[in-house]
Structure formats: structure tokens, C-alpha cells
């Protein structure tokens, strides 16, 4: 894990996104903290002028700076790109031949990639967290920090990012190239949520319920990796799951990477036995999604029409899915020709 040659090599092939990540954290935390202070001061002044109420910073305002909001989504995207530069892109080029010829275990190669990412995330996060915290702490809005816990604004986002990054590496261990890695990471990162939404819609259209729909069950949130990056886990159980999932993904990823068949680099999946699983999942999702889209065009009152249009959408997209999947199975993206 600490071979400096591997650190150097990994850094060299991902430094672009590593520095983007730093920029994102700077924008999210210190810069946003400064700008928020401005905004809050302005609001407080306005509130004082109109004399009607005293402006108070809410927990939500603080969370926006540390663990929620638009920037966390950007960070999540950057983390997926980082993981895909370290594993996926290597597969698209001849670099994988180089790394695999080195005198290291493949799991060591995987751990080195993991360690680089985790160090970068932890380092940059802490580096930006501390000054932002101090900035707010020194201001007149310091009380806002008491509205949130350190679990919410420090541990949850940090461990959430680490988990999501590890998750993206795990996906990299089973996919054959960069684009598949990115696409699958997002798809699986949202999968429980996507399935829930699609089934709910399916049941609603048919007015037939296996389970009641109301607010989103909490376990779906826990099972959806993406939620870990957007500050949804500010509680003990969330933290615990983030750590647990990180351990599972690290060990699992290393084990899968060890069994890597790089002759399948450039193809959709490295492990051919996973093909049927993904074909089924993808087909179902696409078909259900087709139903959802087309049925939403039908007027709300016309139930029969909605069901018909649902199935029209379903079958069209099913066909489309089958065609797409055939392409996926035979695809091969390598940038410098397949060595013979």
C-alpha cells in the first residue's frame, strides 16, 4: 500500500482530477463560508432595518457549507472520475500491462489506488474544513455551529466520500473500461432509489400495490451509495454503515482485482459471469423507465389509457434495451489496438 513508485504512478495519471477535487473543496467550504457570512450579515441587517424579527442562522445554512448542497454532488462526480482514471482509463490504454508486470500483488496495486484516493479526500477535506470552521467560529454567527453535530458536518461527509470513492473503485474492479465504470458507478450508486421509484410508478399506474408507498423508507436511503455523499447520514447508524460498506468494498474490490482478467480490458465487464445479472437489471430498469415516461404523457384521469401507454413505453424501451445490451456485450474500447 505504501510503495512510493505506485503512489507516484497513480498520482501522475490522476493529478488533473486530484487538483480539481481540491478546487471543489475550496469552493465548497472556505469560499462558501466567507460568502455565506456576507449573506447572513446582509440578511441580519435587513431584518434589523425592518425591525420585525431577528435573523438567525439555521442548521440547514451550516450544512450547506460542510455536507450538503450542489458542491457535494460535484465532489461525488469528481470522486467517480478519480476512481475511473485510476482503474478504468488504465484498462483502456496499455498502462495496465505496465502495472501488472510490476513485482506487486494485484491486491497491492488496488490498495495503493485506494490509499491515494483516501489520502487525497481526507487531506483536502480536513484542509478546507478547518479554516471554514474557524471562519464561522470567529464570526458573529458562531452559534450556528452549535446547531449541528460534528457527526453531521465532519464525519458523515468525510466517511461518505471515502465510501463512495471505494465503491467506485470496486465497480472499476469488475468493469472493463472507463466509461462502463463511470456509468455503472452512477447506475448502481442510485440503484435502490431507481428501483423503488420505478416500482412505485408501476404499481401506481396499475393501481395495484405490493407495498404501500408513502415517504421513502429509510433503509432505501441507507442502501443507496449516492446518499452517503450528500449529507444524508449525519447519525450514528449512517456513520457505522459508511465504515462497514467501505471495509466491504475495499476488501471485495481487492479480491476481485486480484482475479482480474485483463485480457477482457476494453469490454463492458471483466467477469463474464456477471453479464447475465447486469443484462437483467439493465433491461428491467430501461423497460420500466420507458413505461414511466410514456404513461406520464397520458392524462391522469384516463386509467385504462395510462396502462396501455405504460405497456407501449415498456415494450419499446425493452426492445431498445435488448439492442443496446447486444452492443454492450460485443463492445471493446482500447485506445491503442488490442495486442495480439
Amino acid at each position: 500500500m505504501f510503495e512510493k513508485g505506485l503512489w507516484f504512478q497513480n498520482y501522475k495519471q490522476s493529478k488533473f482530477i486530484i487538483w480539481i477535487l481540491l478546487v471543489l473543496f475550496v469552493l465548497q467550504m472556505p469560499l462558501q463560508a466567507i460568502l455565506s457570512l456576507e449573506t447572513w450579515t446582509e440578511r441580519a441587517e435587513q431584518a434589523a432595518e425592518t425591525d420585525e424579527y431577528v435573523y438567525e442562522v439555521q442548521a440547514w445554512d451550516i450544512n450547506q457549507i460542510f455536507s450538503q448542497g450542489m458542491f457535494t454532488v460535484f465532489v461525488a462526480v469528481a470522486l467517480v472520475l478519480l476512481a475511473s482514471l485510476l482503474i478504468g482509463l488504465e484498462r483502456n490504454t496499455r498502462r495496465n500491462d505496465f502495472t501488472f508486470s510490476l513485482p506487486y500483488k494485484r491486491s497491492t496495486l488496488f490498495y495503493a489506488k485506494w490509499a491515494l484516493g483516501v489520502t487525497v479526500i481526507t487531506g483536502f477535506f480536513a484542509l478546507n474544513y478547518i479554516p471554514s470552521y474557524i471562519i464561522i467560529h470567529q464570526s458573529e454567527f458562531a452559534y450556528g455551529l452549535n446547531l449541528v453535530s460534528s457527526l453531521e458536518i465532519f464525519w458523515a461527509p468525510l466517511l461518505g466520500y471515502i465510501f463512495f470513492y471505494t465503491f467506485a473503485l470496486l465497480i472499476g474492479a469488475i468493469t472493463g473500461e472507463m466509461v462502463s465504470q463511470v456509468v455503472l458507478t452512477f447506475l448502481l450508486g442510485f440503484l435502490p432509489l431507481i428501483l423503488l421509484t420505478l416500482f412505485q410508478e408501476f404499481m401506481q399506474v396499475h393501481d395495484f400495490f405490493f407495498f404501500s408507498i408513502g415517504s421513502q423508507p429509510r433503509f432505501i436511503t441507507y442502501l443507496t451509495p449516492f446518499y452517503y455523499t450528500i449529507g444524508e447520514m449525519g447519525e450514528m447508524i449512517g456513520i457505522f454503515l459508511a465504515v462497514l460498506f467501505t471495509i466491504i468494498c475495499t476488501l471485495g474490490g481487492a479480491a476481485l482485482y486480484e482475479r482480474n482478467k485483463i485480457e477482457y480490458n476494453g469490454e463492458f465487464l471483466i467477469f463474464k459471469q456477471l453479464n447475465p445479472v447486469f443484462i437483467v437489471i439493465l433491461t428491467i430498469i430501461i423497460a420500466l423507465f420507458g413505461g414511466l415516461i410514456v404513461s406520464s404523457l397520458a392524462p391522469w384521469g384516463a386509467n385504462a389509457l395510462r396502462i396501455i401507454s405504460y405497456w407501449i413505453g415498456f415494450s419499446t424501451f425493452l426492445l431498445f434495451a435488448l439492442l443496446l445490451i447486444r452492443r454492450l456485450i460485443i463492445m471493446n474500447i482500447t485506445f491503442s489496438g488490442k495486442p495480439t
Binding site: 490504454t93 496499455r94 498502462r95 500491462d97 505496465f98 508486470s101 513485482p103 506487486y104 491503442s336 495486442p339
Partner: peptide, 17 residues
């Protein structure tokens, strides 16, 4: 794999590095 310190592979293109 540490035995591989005794081998080195030179591919037909130096693309990787």
C-alpha cells in the same frame, strides 16, 4: 509476485509511459 522484480517486460510500444 515479488519474483517479478527479476523480470521486465518491454512492450512493442512505449505508449504506457
Amino acid at each position: 509476485p515479488s519474483l517479478k522484480a527479476q523480470t521486465i517486460f518491454v512492450p512493442d510500444s512505449s505508449e504506457a509511459l
